[in-house]
């Protein structure tokens, strides 16, 4: 039996995913989560072999969730589901060590087959495709955004949403001074004079940041 966990913030999708997987022989669902916190808890307790999860989560990046899962539980194979085959998401999924990158589309057979394949140790992301996507990103000038670390990216997303330093510190569990230092480092890195300019800049790249 392949033990599968699901993380998706959309209730209809996660229930439909669960039913599809439950109907298959040899795979079964050990838990369903909708956020970073609930996924971490689920993985600690149930130790699934495969985690199927969306790239975008409400208010959080699914990629950050996946990153933390892969870093802390290298045995858990991650299948990233996405509504878009964006270059950002593909490159990030590959770099964080996800095993598969699958478009949310009609075929449930492909999904189940993917779960079986990654559980047996296959990695289904094509490095050649990743290279092409990554070159496209560099050409579009996204390189500098990609060089931000996960914390900075999270902070950048919150800045774009208009959070204050204090609110950011509370959300990302970092000290206020740490957040301030990181924000001022980003100001000089992106050559912006003030926080408003930085927020406008990041809000322009909101959807790219959400998929890194």
């Amino acid at each position: 039996m392949i033990r599968v966990a699901i993380c998706d913030d959309h209730v209809m999708v996660r229930e439909a995913l669960a039913s599809v997987i439950e109907h298959e022989d040899g795979v079964h669902i050990v838990g369903i989560a909708d956020s970073l916190a609930s996924t971490n808890a689920l993985i600690e307790i149930e130790v699934p072999e495969v985690l199927v999860m969306d790239v975008r989560l409400d208010g959080e990046s699914g990629l950050d969730v996946a990153r933390s899962v892969v870093a802390n539980h290298p045995d858990v194979k991650v299948v990233m589901l996405t509504s878009f085959d964006s270059d950002e998401a593909l490159v990030s999924a590959y770099e964080l060590g996800a095993s598969a990158f699958l478009l949310k589309s009609g075929s449930s057979d492909a999904l189940v087959q993917t779960i079986r394949d990654v559980a047996s140790g296959m990695r289904l992301i094509n490095p050649a495709e990743v290279r092409v996507a990554s070159e496209t990103l560099e050409k579009r000038g996204m390189g500098i955004l990609r060089k931000l670390d996960a914390n900075d990216r999270h902070i950048a997303r919150l800045i774009a949403l208009g959070y204050s330093d204090k609110q950011i510190a509370e959300t990302v569990y970092l000290g206020l001074q740490t957040v301030r230092n990181r924000v001022s480092r980003m100001l000089s890195r992106f050559n912006k004079d003030n926080r408003t300019q930085l927020a406008l800049f990041f809000s322009e790249y909101q959807s790219e940041l959400a998929e890194m």
Binding site: M12, V13, L17, S19, S83, S105, G106, S107, S108
Partner: peptide, 8 residues
Amino acid sequence: YATSLSLS
């Protein structure tokens, strides 16, 4: 997507 999964 959810509908199509349920249909399958």
